[in-house]
Simulated assay, not measured.
Amino acid sequence: MATAFGSVFMPEMSITWFDGSSWSAVEMVPSDSISMHPGAHVLHYSSTCFEGLKAFRHEDGSVKIFRIDRNVSRMAQSARLLALPELDEEFMTKMILDTVTRFKSDVPAPPGSMYIRPTLFGTEPAIGKAAAPSETACFYVLLSPVGDYFAGGDRALRLLVDDQGLRCAPHNGMIKSGGNYASALLPTMRAKEKYNVDQVLFCPNGDVQETGAANFLLIDGDEVITRDLDESFLHGVTRDSVLQIARDNGLKVSERRLTVEELLERAAKPGCEAALSGTAAVLAPVGTLVYGDKEYTVGDGGIGETTLKLRKALNDIQWGKAEDKHGWLTDV
């Protein structure tokens, strides 16, 4: 049986603790457990955020991390928005680089990579602080060597278009927090059972936003359409990278409001494509939309040519097969 994506970990992780005034010296510790008080703030009030980024092995044996600056910046932003103890971006960057360096020889060759999961959470043992932040915290960097996300077979996904529900509280959308993923879990499970879909595309009040775990893009001919950024949904690093590559390839990028009505109308056109963007899959094709108990085929229902082209272009940069024109790669 194949190992589930992200379920294998390196034997050690780096960790530091905030005592209310300063962060402790970074240590390497076994990654199979962590000790905290049962009254820890995170266990009761979800004071936690994380990031997901990858390190890639190039043909010459070197290892590069993709867009570490953007992930670190977003992590610092999430910490601020959750009122968690501040994390210095240089400190985080060094901790990530040092951790990956320690396990540099274990970074898989293409199409694999080393998934990097920096995580921050509130540790203060205080169950009376439902309306107050944790004064203490823990930050660690966990590594997971992963294989090809599409090893089980690349296929076009099915999405339920939900114009009533919310993925998460709108003012928390741009925070990469576990609570946001948890709030989308039950609607997704119900949709899978009832409609045999892979994900739910949340479109509150008919405004197309994102799924529970990925940003959404519609590709209509030479135009890529996706929701313009605000605080209601996650500002994906992969999303930003794909849009830049689309511009580099002469495609028109429209970051704007997209209604469910326009989505279904455009999706039915020959040659139209849709995709989900995220760190794990880069771009996953969407072939069917389910709305109001009716199915709508996106284009021909298969894997779109432009989707594959954009995904390959991004993978080629990550694996060192194409020029890194935007300075996205950092040496380990």
Rank of each mutant, 00 (worst) to 15 (best):
T3S: 15
G6L: 00
S7M: 13
P11N: 09
M13D: 01
W17D: 15
W17G: 01
D19L: 12
G20H: 11
W23M: 14
S24P: 00
S33C: 12
H37Q: 14
G39S: 14
G39Q: 01
V42I: 11
V42C: 14
L43Y: 05
E51I: 06
E51T: 09
G52A: 09
G52R: 08
G52Q: 03
A55W: 00
R57A: 03
I68M: 11
I68F: 01
D69V: 00
N71M: 04
S73N: 12
R74M: 06
M75L: 15
A76P: 00
S78E: 05
A83R: 15
E86P: 04
E86Y: 15
E90V: 12
K94Y: 08
D98Y: 07
V100A: 10
V100P: 01
K104P: 00
V107D: 02
P108R: 00
A109S: 15
G112M: 10
G112F: 07
G112C: 11
I116G: 07
I116A: 09
P118N: 04
P118M: 08
T119P: 02
T119S: 13
E124H: 08
P125D: 01
A126I: 02
K129Y: 14
A132P: 05
P133A: 11
T136I: 08
A137E: 03
C138S: 13
C138E: 03
Y140N: 01
L142E: 04
S144V: 13
V146D: 07
G147M: 11
Y149V: 00
Y149I: 01
A151D: 02
A151H: 04
R155F: 13
R158W: 12
L160C: 04
Q164I: 12
Q164V: 12
G165S: 08
C168M: 11
A169F: 11
H171D: 10
N172I: 01
N172D: 04
G173N: 06
I175E: 08
K176W: 08
S177W: 06
S177C: 08
S177T: 10
G179V: 08
N180S: 02
Y181V: 10
L185C: 11
M189V: 14
M189T: 09
R190M: 08
K192F: 13
K194V: 13
C203I: 10
P204A: 14
N205R: 10
G206C: 05
G206N: 00
D207M: 09
Q209Y: 00
E210C: 03
A214L: 03
A214C: 11
L217W: 06
S232Q: 13
D240F: 04
L243M: 15
L243G: 00
Q244E: 15
R247H: 13
N249C: 03
G250C: 14
L251F: 14
K252W: 02
E255L: 01
R256S: 08
R256C: 07
R256D: 07
V260N: 04
E261C: 11
L263N: 04
L264V: 07
L264S: 03
A267H: 05
K269A: 15
P270E: 06
L276I: 09
A281H: 14
V282N: 04
V282L: 06
L283G: 07
L283V: 03
G287C: 06
V290A: 05
E295C: 12
Y296W: 13
G301Q: 06
G301E: 07
G302H: 02
G304F: 01
T306Q: 14
T306F: 09
T306V: 15
K309F: 13
R311M: 10
K312R: 15
D316N: 06
H326R: 08
W328I: 10
T330R: 12
